Amino acid sequence: MMKRLGIVFFAASLAACSNTPVPTNEAKEVAGSQLLSTAYAKATPDTGEVVIKRDSGRMGSLCNLYVFVDGNPVAKLYPEEKITLHLAQGRHILSADPRGACPGGMSEQVTDVVKASTQVFRGSFTSAGDFNLLPTAF
């Protein structure tokens, strides 16, 4: 009985630390001092859209998530926020670096932007404390 209770408690504690994907249309667009650059703010006929968003949840909630495009800082995200970038066609490196009182380290993804298309990436912390920036369908 005690063993089962311990397993249930352990599973519940992991669930409390889990993060949840935020639907792209429900994530709040960053603005103001959280925008570190407006270089990718305007769409043109030759750009594609890249959305980088951050999960909701407690894991990593004391962190600021810094987002970079090709090594250039573009935004600081809090939980449940996103930045929409309009990037030129071609290869780009997206980086997300959690800074502050948080686990994990920088995560990077290579993406090939196609004009008039949209790609969505999700910055998330696992229950083990790892940080990932990955393409997402959510």
Score class of each variant (00 low, 15 high):
S33R: 06
V8L: 14
V8F: 06
T24Y: 02
S124T: 13
L85N: 03
L77E: 06
K76G: 00
K115L: 12
S124E: 13
L65D: 09
I83P: 03
D97A: 10
Y66H: 09
D70V: 01
E80T: 15
V51Y: 08
S95K: 01
A41E: 13
G48K: 02
S95Q: 13
M106T: 14
E26D: 14
Y40C: 09
I7A: 13
L87D: 07
K82W: 03
T44K: 08
S127W: 06
T20E: 12
R122Q: 15
H92I: 09
T126L: 07
F9N: 00
T20D: 11
V120R: 02
E81L: 03
T20G: 07
P135K: 14
G104R: 12
V67D: 00
P135M: 10
F68Y: 15
F125K: 01
T24C: 05
G32I: 04
K28M: 14
K3H: 03
R99E: 15
D112T: 12
N64C: 04
E108Y: 00
D55E: 12
T84S: 11
F68H: 09
S127F: 07
L87P: 03
E49C: 09
S107G: 03
G90K: 05
K53N: 08
F68E: 07
D112H: 05
S61I: 14
G57P: 02
D70I: 04
S56A: 15
K53Y: 04
V74H: 06
F125H: 12
G123C: 05
P103A: 11
C102M: 05
H92Q: 08
V30N: 03
A15D: 00
M59F: 01
E26M: 13
T118W: 00
P23L: 11
G105C: 01
A15H: 01
F138L: 11
S37Q: 06
A39K: 14
L134N: 15
T136C: 07
S127Q: 12
P79I: 09
A116T: 02
F125S: 08
S18M: 08
G90T: 05
T136E: 06
G90E: 02
G48E: 05
L77H: 09
T24E: 13
C17T: 04
S107H: 08
S107T: 04
G104M: 12
P103F: 13
A31I: 06
S61P: 01
G90S: 08
H92L: 06
P135L: 07
H86C: 03
S37R: 07
G100S: 10
T44L: 04
L36K: 10
T118Q: 11
A96G: 15
R91L: 10
S61H: 04
R91T: 14
S127K: 11
N132K: 15
G105N: 14
I93P: 01
H92R: 07
A43V: 01
A116R: 12
K3N: 09
M106E: 15
F138P: 00
D112V: 10
Q89G: 15
T126E: 06
R58A: 09
A11H: 01
Q109A: 11
S18E: 05
K28F: 08
L36H: 05
K28D: 13
V67T: 11
G129Q: 03
E49N: 10
T126V: 04
V51G: 04
D46V: 08
P103L: 12
E108I: 09
P98M: 04
S13W: 04
S18N: 09
H92D: 05
A27C: 07
M2C: 06
